Simulated assay, not measured.
Amino acid sequence: MPELRPVTEIRTVACIGAGVIGAGWAAYFLSRGLRVRAWDPAPDAGEKLRRVVDAAWPALTELGLADGADPGAIELLPTVAEAVEGADFVQESAPEDLALKRSLLAELAAATAADVVVASSTSGFPMTDMATDAADPGRLVVGHPFNPPYLIPLVEVVGGEKTEAWVASRAADFYRHIGKSVIEMDRELPGFIANRLQEAIWREALHMVAAGEATPEEIDRSITDGPGLRWPVHGPCLTFHLAGGQGGMAHMLDHFGPSLKAPWTRLEAPELTPELRDDMVAGAEVSAGGRPMAELVAERDRAVIAVRRAVDAARAAGGAGA
């Protein structure tokens, strides 16, 4: 294990890949007063990166900027090697292509110092599978965010079979230091935790649309005006604990346990037929109501900020009254 500086001394982050996720990470790092060195092979990467940062900055400002936060403290470099030069932490956010991830992570591991963590934003690949080409896979770890990374606080951290223990701990400590909510997973799990749960709902939604049982708009409203209102506070497990009344989870399971075998769910993914695809696209357009993507993004950001503030206030009030 190399000699490590405190995570508070991490001042420069390399963002490798500047698409939606990578640019979102860049905006968040900038809001925390960090400098960002970015790389992306797309010819219009600089323009897209600037557009995402500018669009995210009002929401980040409303949430509260760290001292020294500067949306201009970012530089797009022509090569990976130049982008990671002088970086204290690396966040890789390349497309979900396993061969690409393997090659890029191997290059990053070779180009960075022994005390620099290289984290991948992958949404599904385990690090054990992505690190196969790296001569030194010990500093490679998953740091999986939720979109958009500048707004949603969750990051799931998990190493691969050859990831050194200090690497996962340091990544988690760094993310917490910059204000993220971190789950340190003790084992690799396909799809991680949050994506597994999200995917279950998504598959059920596709089945219901394919069977003509519900429209995309009805499915969205069933969550936004139903259980989705409870989940920012308690999550699905604690919600069911409350459903058991004074008996809590034990009473809920004893009472509703038999219904777990009821044929409600169809967890196998349905075939994505042209008809189902067209129905989902048309349904999403109905839900969007003709509004442009930028307007929808702004609406989402305002609402998430309001929800986060309301939940934080409720928790603070509960703690004060305890």
Score class of each variant (00 low, 15 high):
H241W: 13
A109K: 03
Q91R: 06
V311R: 10
A135L: 09
E85D: 15
G17I: 02
Y175Q: 13
V304K: 01
W202A: 15
G247W: 11
M130E: 10
G22K: 00
P216Q: 14
G159F: 07
L197H: 04
P126A: 10
I183Q: 10
S120T: 13
R315N: 11
A111S: 15
S181W: 07
M127C: 04
E213Y: 00
E295A: 14
E213S: 06
D312K: 13
R11Q: 12
V36W: 02
R203S: 03
R35F: 04
I305D: 05
C237P: 00
D220R: 05
A66Q: 08
S169L: 09
G248P: 03
G321C: 07
A288W: 13
A205E: 01
D70F: 09
T122Q: 05
D70C: 07
E295Y: 03
F256V: 00
L104E: 03
G283S: 10
P137T: 06
R266A: 07
P232C: 09
A322I: 06
T224W: 11
A294D: 15
A18K: 00
S103E: 15
F174L: 13
F240L: 15
A310Q: 14
R221T: 14
K48F: 06
S103A: 14
F29R: 02
V142L: 12
A214I: 12
A55R: 12
K101V: 12
G226V: 07
T61I: 02
D312I: 04
R170Y: 13
A73T: 08
D173G: 12
A81N: 09
A269F: 06
T215Y: 06
W25S: 02
L253G: 03
V141Y: 08
I183Y: 13
E82N: 00
V233N: 02
A56N: 07
T8C: 07
S120R: 04
T273C: 08
A38G: 04
L276A: 10
D301R: 05
A56W: 03
Q198A: 15
A250F: 05
P216R: 09
T132H: 00
K180C: 15
I152D: 00
R196L: 14
G159V: 07
L77K: 04
A56K: 01
L267Q: 11
R300M: 14
A42H: 08
V155F: 05
T265L: 14
G138K: 01
A99G: 14
V307D: 06
E92W: 07
F29L: 07
S123D: 10
C15W: 01
R291L: 14
A56I: 05
F174H: 05
P258F: 02
V53N: 01
A313K: 12
P292L: 07
P292Y: 10
P153K: 03
G319P: 01
V20Y: 05
A200P: 01
V297W: 08
W202K: 10
Q198M: 14
